[in-house]
Simulated scan of single mutants.
Amino acid sequence: MTSFDEVVAEDYIPTDRPMRIGRYMLGAVIGEGKSAIVRKAAKEGDKKKYAVKVLNKLAGHRGTLIQLQFQQEVEALRRISHENVICMHDCLHSQKRLYIVLELLTGTLLSIYVAKRRGLSEHETLDYSQQLTSALAYLHKNYIVHRDIKPDNVILDKETKLLKIIDLGLSATCPSTPHLTRRCGTPAYMAPEVTNTTGYGCAVDMWSLGVSIVEMLQGAAPVLNELHHKGNYPKLVQRRNMFAGLPSLSKDCVNFLDRLLQLYPERRMSAADALQHAWVKSCQTSKPQHQQQQHLQQQDTE
């Protein structure tokens, strides 16, 4: 096993001393997570700037898990191309590190934007919800479940109002029959069935979408401390608590949330159905004509 000193020494790269990986020159750190850092990068002969996610595959007992997550993320990103999902350009590895070269996004985390605004209007929330629903419908059509949908994993370009889902490190391939059993994700956004040993599927993303919409509307994630176990299945005692802090909403919005935040996954609305819901459909009628045409072209490619 790699010693602590070796790991720390390898991890420390001063931002004023760029590091080269293949044809990429890594620069300043622009993001940090539990198992990865993100650096700004430039490629030889290319004027574009990139973001490079760097993972330590020798991180003690977590090394194997990190390598698995790297493989899952790369496999998912190679298969997809959607305006609301971050794009991968390349992937590399060294003896001790794994690198995912991604498009460089300008903007802010949706969670930070929502917190600063102390909640968004229903109209603005609708626009962002439609984009997230479109992305999830595309992922699920390609048999990919994200497993960690939350505003912390969404980048918002405040000028164009375009959202992009990031961090597919927990993503997995999931056919029509739910079979995933690994308990993962962020507890506040985690669907109840994730703790059930019988398996789960794409429906977990739809629960997380519902929680994320609630957060957008009220300015903070709902506190779900009303979960109690009955046998091996968690039971939500007072689901209405999730709606308690919300402002006055349209009937379509309430119905949309209600159909996402269903305890049992088989009763939960799918992403494809969500795209046809009256609340989401109303978003298209309020967009300028050129944006509607762009969206329809995107759906055709899906």
Results as ranks from 00 to 15, higher is better:
Thr108His: 01
Leu55Ala: 01
Lys53Ala: 03
Cys283Phe: 11
Ile165Val: 15
Ser94Gln: 01
Val214Asp: 02
Ser3Glu: 11
Lys96Met: 00
Glu122Met: 04
Arg79His: 05
Gln289Leu: 15
Lys141Arg: 15
His228Gln: 15
Glu266Ala: 09
Cys283Ser: 13
Pro192Phe: 03
Tyr12Gln: 13
Gln238Cys: 11
Thr177Asn: 09
His290Thr: 12
Thr133Arg: 05
Asn232Met: 07
Thr195Gln: 03
Asp152Gly: 15
Asp46Gln: 13
Gly63Leu: 06
Leu58Asn: 13
Glu122Asn: 03
Asp46Lys: 11
Ile213His: 01
Asp300Cys: 09
Ala172Val: 08
Ala172His: 08
Arg118Val: 07
Leu263Thr: 11
Leu296Ile: 11
Glu32Asn: 10
Glu32Lys: 14
Ile37Trp: 00
Asp127Cys: 12
Gly201Tyr: 05
Pro187Val: 04
Thr181Phe: 00
Asp152Leu: 07
Cys174Asn: 09
Ala137Val: 06
Lys40Gly: 02
Lys235Ser: 13
His229Gln: 13
Glu159Met: 08
Gly107Phe: 00
Asn84Ile: 06
Thr2Gly: 04
Thr173Arg: 13
Ala271Pro: 05
Met269Tyr: 06
Lys96Trp: 00
Asp127Val: 10
Ile213Phe: 02
Cys91Leu: 07
Val54Ile: 15
Leu246Lys: 05
Arg147Asp: 05
Phe4Val: 15
Tyr264Gln: 14
Val29Met: 04
Thr173Ser: 11
Gln67Trp: 10
Pro222Trp: 07
Gln291Cys: 09
Ile155Asp: 06
Thr125Gln: 03
Pro222Thr: 09
Ser250Arg: 03
Gly199Lys: 07
Asp16Cys: 06
Ile165Phe: 06
Leu296Glu: 15
Leu109Asn: 01
Val223Gly: 10
Ala115His: 14
Asp5Val: 13
Ala36Asn: 05
Asn142Cys: 07
Met206Glu: 03
Asp5Tyr: 12
Gly219Arg: 08
Thr64Gln: 14
Leu275Arg: 14
Tyr128Thr: 02
Arg62Ser: 13
Cys253His: 03
Gln71Tyr: 08
Ile213Tyr: 00
Leu236Gly: 00
Asp157Gln: 04
Lys150Asn: 05
Ile86Lys: 07
Gln67Lys: 15
Glu159Gln: 12
Ala115Thr: 13
Lys40Leu: 12
Leu156Met: 02
